[in-house]
């Protein structure tokens, strides 16, 4: 493991920490969406989910490359070294769970990249490109949230359950990340109002319950993850780790 997060200057280190956090988010969610291939409820969603997964993987590759070698970072770190939020590592569950996770996360990403694009920091260029992609992801998630919430009784129940189940993992997204200088409480307020409006259109209830605390939220950025994550990494890293030093 020769990965170094140690760009010489402290400004570099701060940028690396931010890039790693956002890169891990995108990498891990992309992986989860890739698990849908061949299992989607309708062909159009095979295309859409793969498309979103590809966008996210593209973002991850750019971000991780700012930190070090993308493959070393993806394949040779262990669970405790990943900095993604717990939300993105949550298993796909049914289609409603996947959509709820997409709604929560794409709204966050759009707000975050929108703000980053307006700064003159080192992530501004990437953010300006990525915000166009995540606007599409958010649109896709919102449309499905409304379709499922305001569809049949069964889809309404499933969508509500999914929103409730993932709610506890939403608070962690607003913990300040080193190197990202934005007004986090203001962003959280925007997120809450955006998501609430969609849930209302979908005839769903905004969930209640805790959104902070080490185990319910907030610890992913410190490398404290949920159980399914280790298994996901085992699958993702197995082949690469089986052939040390090989090129592919």
């Amino acid at each position: 493991m020769t990965t170094s997060l140690n760009p010489a200057s402290s400004a570099g280190a701060v940028t690396a920490a931010a890039a790693l956090a956002l890169g891990d988010d995108a990498l891990v969610l992309s992986h989860r969406l890739g698990e849908w291939a061949g299992h989607a409820p309708v062909l159009e969603e095979e295309v859409a989910l793969a498309n979103i997964a590809l966008d996210l993987l593209g973002q991850a590759r750019v971000l991780l490359s700012l930190v070090g070698d993308e493959d070393e970072l993806a394949y040779l770190r262990e669970e405790r070294a990943f900095r993604n939020v717990q939300l993105v590592e949550q298993p796909n569950g049914d289609f409603a769970h996947t959509i709820a996770r997409q709604l929560y996360f794409s709204t966050y990403q759009r707000l975050l990249y929108g703000r980053l694009a307006g700064t003159d920091g080192p992530l501004a260029g990437l953010a300006a490109k990525a915000v166009k992609e995540v606007a599409y992801h958010q649109d896709h998630a919102e449309q499905w949230t409304v379709r499922l919430g305001d569809g049949t009784a069964e889809s309404h129940d499933r969508m509500q359950r999914a929103c409730d189940a993932l709610w506890r993992h939403t608070g962690e997204m607003f913990q300040p990340v080193d190197g990202i200088d934005i007004d986090w409480p203001e962003m959280e307020a925007s997120w809450t109002s955006s998501v609430s409006a969609v849930l209302e259109r979908a005839t769903l209830t905004v969930p209640e319950g805790p959104r902070t605390g080490a185990w319910s939220a907030g610890a992913g950025r410190q490398g404290l993850h949920t159980e399914p994550f280790g298994r996901m990494l085992a699958e993702m890293q197995h082949l690469h780790r089986s052939h040390p030093g090989a090129s592919w």
């Binding site: 890739g34 698990e35 993987l57 493959d71 699958e235 993702m236 197995h238």
Partner: peptide, 17 residues
Amino acid sequence: TRAPSLRRKAILMAKVQ
């Protein structure tokens, strides 16, 4: 989910899409 590099993973995802 087991592709051995991120580049190969992107290519494979695009192909399946």
